[in-house]
Design a binder for these strands. Structure first.
Lengths: 213, 213
DNA sequence: TACCGAAAGTGGTCTGGCCACTTTTGAACA
DNA sequence: TGTTCAAAAGTGGCCAGACCACTTTCGGTA
């Protein structure tokens, strides 16, 4: 059970304790954490060790710091993770392609899940998209995909997706063209009706269009 | 260098410089990095700042440190990432289920890719598994899945999978029962022949069996 | 009541020190 | 010549204290 209670490194231990502290004191996203000096005293460790732990979490994007202001629990979607990982790991073109493909893996699975789940595919939110697609000018690829992934209900998959989507954000954030909107409508319609195959087919077409633009 | 010294955080700057250093000096995975004191001097910053950067990368699993020995560029598959993220984000049962589902997303996609790709599904490696399944006693679920993901060729997907697989490793590392071996054979055979549907069906059955044991 | 400036609080960074552990070195030994 | 092993050097782990830059807080003045 306590598999790693005998942590060697203090800073890893602090990461653990920080987690407990956040849970105990019910610190919500965006709220302030105790100051470095306070943490140092409460946990009985040096301030530099606390900083090592905090900096680690910051790099992971789990906390944010404001010089002179304090340390705050991050509001989810601001992970530097992919940026850092990509700096070290992904450098060639093949890797960039991998990022895109991996992102699409999660997107496709979400479409499958929704198509096959009565309660999800009949959600009113999809109808709202039809309205948006006709009325609003600014609908980005990302908006639609995000809703899909969120609805599919796998939070971890969502998290991975956010990171990957942040990586080649330019293309995703661009507003959709009329051609794309049509494809999106087809896809959503198929999904609503539970036509998994058709929905995925439309999705593939959509991605193809995105690449060419 | 193009130092964009907009009062950015030194430790983030160090992370960048570290990356360049690794690239410049062609430090390979497993090889040693300069010591903290040397880095501190070369980069013209305090040792504590260097440590904050190194500890961050350590938490990400990009480097490994040996007390008294030195700091080493990590040999890929040892990312603590999921563990840390899950500590903070995934705490309930639902989340554990998410980990499993997310892992399976990548596995299924790999099976699809291989099934649909002549050059991949006809690889001799699959035949070798049939022999192994019959002769060797110790074949773990993980062995088979890993080969599948590797063959599919998406390195990022592989990386994500490694992390997720590490998360609930107990079940994956266990040796396969005779029943499971039969299912695996069915799956591989279908995959070899390009029968995507059947392969996935066998896969689902396999996972179901795993859960019940 | 509204405003402003000083004080307090907080993160950012550096220095220097001590400890524990690993690797290297070199001298004694076989 | 080759081996062994203990001392020395190298390295990470951790802490205390100091100073700076910035933000927030708070009390007094207009």
């Amino acid at each position: 059970m306590d598999k790693k209670t005998e942590q060697k490194k203090v800073f890893l231990d602090i990461v653990q304790q920080l987690r407990q502290l956040i849970k105990m004191e019910e610190i919500q996203a965006g709220e302030k954490l105790p100051s470095e000096r306070v943490l140092s005293e409460r946990l009985g460790v040096g301030r530099s060790s606390v900083r090592e732990a905090l900096r680690s979490l910051e790099l992971l994007g789990l906390i944010e710091t404001k010089h002179g202001g304090g340390t705050f629990l991050a509001s989810t979607h601001k992970h530097q993770l992919v940026e850092i990982l990509s700096m070290f790991i992904l450098e060639d073109e093949k890797s960039k392609k991998d990022v895109e493909l991996t992102r699409q893996i999660h997107e496709k699975e979400a479409i499958r899940v929704i198509s096959c789940t009565e309660t999800l595919r009949t959600l009113p939110v999809w109808d709202s998209f039809f309205v948006k697609l006709e009325i609003e000018d600014a609908i980005s690829c990302r908006d639609v995909l995000r809703e899909i992934i969120i609805t599919a209900g796998n939070r971890l998959s969502l998290k991975v997706w956010f990171q990957l989507a942040a990586y080649d954000g330019d293309r995703l954030n661009r507003n959709s063209t009329e051609e794309e909107k049509l494809i999106i409508q087809t896809m959503l319609k198929s999904m609503q009706l539970g036509y998994e195959k058709e929905a995925l087919k439309a999705y593939e077409q959509w991605m193809k269009t995105l690449r060419s633009n």
